[in-house]
Each structure stands twice: as structure tokens, then as C-alpha cells.
């Protein structure tokens, strides 16, 4: 049980004032372990808000270094950080906001061989990666390890997110059976993205994380939330857990992870 110092009580006072959160909820946040996969457009606001919220242990994974073209939306990285590893850059800002945290960095790519070991022990995962093989890999690994996670994707002026609670809600593969053909879907680096879209979606993912940890409200479990910022039209589509889902269904055909589908392990 955590005994908050006076300084911590002040730092978290706006959470503690919330009837739904209170001291108890803040203790849950301070004891929680959350892993952020991707320190880019989505990971940046997630890292900042979760650090500010006092999530006790925050892992952050990204193999990349900061480039000047990242700075239009990846607000955790500054101009001085160009060429610095993204996880180092992110860790510095997270600890500058909140020195009480433990930040674990993983400067590596996720692949079938390492994903389960990396995610094990975390209470919640935030997925904000830029490629489909990794999105499916995270989904499958989280189903196998029974770790809830938030999926996030953005493109141009649009974003989508869903929260997956393994065993209870539909998973990403219930909605999208397999990765689309390589290069069939434009990525942000090909098609562009309005910078603030990353902030809109990332803060939704951060909010889902805080809701899950504190038990407040209803998570976007098995519900795909999409928005188009051009019209500010938001839409939620709920899907029941699919019996024939290849990973979380009644007779799963994906029972172990391989890199055959996930050709992302470029080391």
C-alpha cells in the first residue's frame, strides 16, 4: 500500500478529487505497469499523459531514432533529439514530467521470438505501431498472454481505436482476419497524416488505459471507434467475440507465433 507524500497528494490532486478515482484509484495507477509499443505519433501523447498520471512502471518500445519529419506530430521528441533513440528521448521527457516513475526502455523490434517475454508482467499494453504485421503480432501475443490492450491506427485525417480484453471481448483479428497485402494500405509515411490526429487518438488510448487501470466507466471493449476529423464524425461499431476467430475463437488455428506472417523482424 502506497503512502502518498504531501507533494504526491498535490501532484495527483485533480485525480484524487474525482469521485470515481480518488486516493484508491490513484494508488492503482501508481502501482500499475503499462507498456507502450511505439514511441511515435500515438506513443508520444500516451507516454506524456501516462507519465503525468503517475503510472508507476512504464515500458516503452521502439527500435527507431528521432528524425526531423517526426517532429510535426511526435510531441515527446524535440528538435535537439534528432538522431537520438526514440525510447531514450521519450524516457527523458517522461521522467522530467514525473521523476517518481520507473521507465523501462526497449530499443528493439518486436518479433515472434521476443514479444511474449517483453509483454509478460504488464497490466495493459498500448499498441501504436505503424505496420500491420506488428499490430497482428501484438494482438495474438496479448490474446495468448491474456493481457488487455488498446489498438490504435491513424491515417490522413482519420483514426481508429479499440480495446481488447482477452477472453471477454472481440479481438483485432475478430474484426480484421489477416494483415492486408504488403503495401496495399498506405502508411502515414506514404499518405501523410495531420499531426494533431495523433494527439486525438493517442489521448483516447491514454484515457482507455487510465479507465482500465482504475476500473472507471466502460472500456471500448470489442468496439471499434473511428473518427474523421474533416467532419468530426465519430462512429462506434461493436462486434461480438467471433466463434471462428483464428486466434481467440473456439478452435483457434493460430496457437503459436511465427514470423511467417509477421515479416517485421528486420534486425
Amino acid at each position: 500500500m502506497i503512502d502518498f507524500t504531501n507533494e504526491q497528494l498535490k501532484r495527483y490532486s485533480r485525480h484524487i478529487l474525482l469521485q470515481d478515482v480518488g486516493v484508491e484509484g490513484q494508488i492503482k495507477l501508481c502501482e500499475a505497469k503499462v507498456l507502450i509499443i511505439g514511441a511515435g505519433g500515438l506513443g508520444a501523447p500516451v507516454a506524456l499523459y501516462l507519465a503525468a498520471a503517475g503510472i508507476g512502471t512504464l515500458g516503452i518500445l521502439d527500435h527507431d531514432r528521432v528524425e526531423i519529419s517526426n517532429l510535426q506530430r511526435q510531441v515527446v521528441h524535440f528538435t535537439k533529439d534528432i538522431n537520438v533513440s526514440k525510447v531514450t528521448s521519450a524516457k527523458e521527457k517522461m521522467l522530467a514530467i514525473n521523476p517518481d516513475l520507473t521507465v523501462r526502455t526497449y530499443q528493439e523490434m518486436l518479433c515472434a521470438d521476443n514479444v511474449r517475454d517483453i509483454i509478460r508482467g504488464y497490466d495493459f499494453i498500448v499498441e501504436g505501431t505503424d505496420n500491420f504485421p506488428t499490430k497482428f503480432l501484438v494482438n495474438d501475443a496479448c490474446i495468448m498472454e491474456k493481457i488487455p490492450f488498446s489498438h490504435g491506427g491513424i491515417l490522413r485525417f482519420t483514426g481508429q481505436t479499440m480495446t481488447v480484453l482477452p477472453g471477454r471481448t472481440a479481438c483485432y483479428r475478430c474484426f480484421f482476419r489477416q494483415p492486408p497485402p504488403p503495401d496495399a494500405v498506405p502508411t502515414c509515411s506514404q499518405a501523410g497524416v495531420l499531426g494533431a490526429i495523433a494527439g486525438m487518438l493517442g489521448t483516447i488510448q491514454a484515457t482507455e488505459t487510465l479507465k482500465f487501470i482504475t476500473g472507471v466507466g466502460e472500456p471500448l471493449g470489442g468496439t471499434l471507434l473511428s473518427f474523421d476529423a474533416k467532419t468530426m464524425h465519430f462512429r462506434k461499431v461493436k462486434l461480438q467475440k467471433q466463434k471462428n476467430c483464428p486466434v481467440c475463437g473456439e478452435s483457434p488455428t493460430i496457437t503459436e507465433l511465427t514470423d511467417a506472417e509477421q515479416s517485421v523482424c528486420v534486425l
Partner: peptide
């Protein structure tokens, strides 16, 4: 969810509800 292999055979009827869900891949980059 409709299996992609059945797109040409499954018939849509009056008053059906259809959702198109798009892949959205960006995030880190």
C-alpha cells in the same frame, strides 16, 4: 464478419445492416 471468400455469393437483403471497416495502419513511423 463476412469471410472474404464469400463476398461474391452472400446476398444482402432488404433492411440489412452493413458496416465497412477500414484498415488503419499508422501510428509510430
Amino acid at each position: 464478419i463476412v469471410d472474404r471468400a464469400h463476398y461474391e455469393t452472400i446476398k444482402i437483403s432488404d433492411n440489412d445492416t452493413v458496416e465497412f471497416l477500414y484498415f488503419m495502419g499508422g501510428g509510430a513511423g
